[in-house]
């Protein structure tokens, strides 16, 4: 089974929950943890594993073959992303706008746009006892996170299909990157905080997960700040509250050092256990 940890709002505790849940579960069974917050992955700050391998990830973008090109301009007219531009007697390719659909390359009558590999980012694979940890990191300057997330999931399917319990740390937001990270999950844990910002963004995340028809539950972090509107919302919407994490300065301090909460705060084990039991009951 695959669980995705997601949130609308950033900084609500996705990584904290994902790494603690994964290492806690790995005390009793093999677990795969994937950090797919590819723009700003932080899982490796908390997982002290032994690096097994690093894999460069590529995607394909067109390369202009000037000698074959007849300058018909069809590619530039067809590209839905304006990634190809005919400027005088030159075809300009802008890889940052390209979505790798291959249309230009395959439809070019002169076969003047062969696809070439372009770097997307890097996958690091670490082992830590029963835990297999894959961190996916986007190259700086690249605009699209989704292609790297899709490639990372393919890598996990190929390498770790034997691991029955998998956890994904998703990117924040509710746009295409978050969707790519959660869409293969069997269960989604949304984590938020009891403030108007947290509730507003949780609501967006709930609507997103409902569109995907994936079962989900909510963890409320920093319980004790703000107000109880989030709890009223969960009750009204019939959404299960999986666990609460109290608001303590000490938790922020442990987190800041890259420490693991369930090792420092025994009560946190009970919360993690509740989340795991519920998620596994879904299957």
């Amino acid at each position: 089974m695959r669980i995705a940890i997601a949130s609308g709002k950033g900084g609500t505790g996705k990584t904290t929950l994902a790494v603690n849940l994964a290492l806690f579960a790995a005390e009793t069974e093999p677990v795969l943890l994937m950090d797919l917050d590819v723009e700003e992955p932080n899982g490796s700050i908390f997982v002290e594993g032994v690096l097994q391998s690093e894999t460069a990830v590529y995607r394909e973008v067109p390369r202009w073959d000037q000698s074959a090109c007849t300058l018909c301009g069809k590619c530039s007219a067809w590209c839905a992303y304006n990634a190809l531009l005919k400027l005088g007697d030159t075809i300009l390719v802008m890889p940052n706008l390209c979505h790798s659909c291959h249309a230009c390359s395959e439809l070019c009558p002169a076969e003047a746009l062969p696809m070439k590999q372009e770097s997307l980012g890097k996958l690091s694979y670490l082992e830590c006892g029963n835990l297999r940890f894959v961190e996916s990191k986007l190259d700086i300057g690249l605009e699209q996170a989704s292609p790297l997330i899709a490639e990372s999931l393919k890598y996990a399917d190929k390498m770790f299909s034997d691991i029955g319990f998998q956890i994904i740390d998703s990117p924040p937001g509710t746009a295409c990157a978050m969707l790519s990270a959660v869409k293969t999950a069997d269960f989604v844990v949304l984590i938020s905080e009891p403030t108007p910002f947290g509730l507003h963004d949780l609501n967006l995340a709930v609507e997103t997960i409902r569109q995907l028809s994936i079962p989900f539950g909510v963890v409320v972090n920093r319980d004790g700040i703000g107000n109880d509107d989030i709890y009223k919302y969960l009750e009204q919407e019939g959404i299960v509250l999986l666990a609460g994490i109290p608001n303590q300065r000490r938790i922020a301090e442990i987190y800041s050092q890259g420490g693991l909460l369930y090792k420092a705060i025994p009560e946190f084990r009970t919360s993690l256990d509740k989340v795991l039991r519920y998620a596994k009951g879904i299957r």
């Binding site: 723009e39 700003e40 932080n42 700050i45 700086i140 300057g141 987190y255 800041s256 050092q257 890259g258």
Partner: peptide, 18 residues
């Protein structure tokens, strides 16, 4: 002032520098 915050700051600053 957390390891995560610092790590993310460095990556976003690399982008800003461009």
């Amino acid at each position: 002032a957390s390891k995560s915050g610092f790590s993310d700051l460095k990556r976003v600053w690399e982008l800003v520098k461009r």
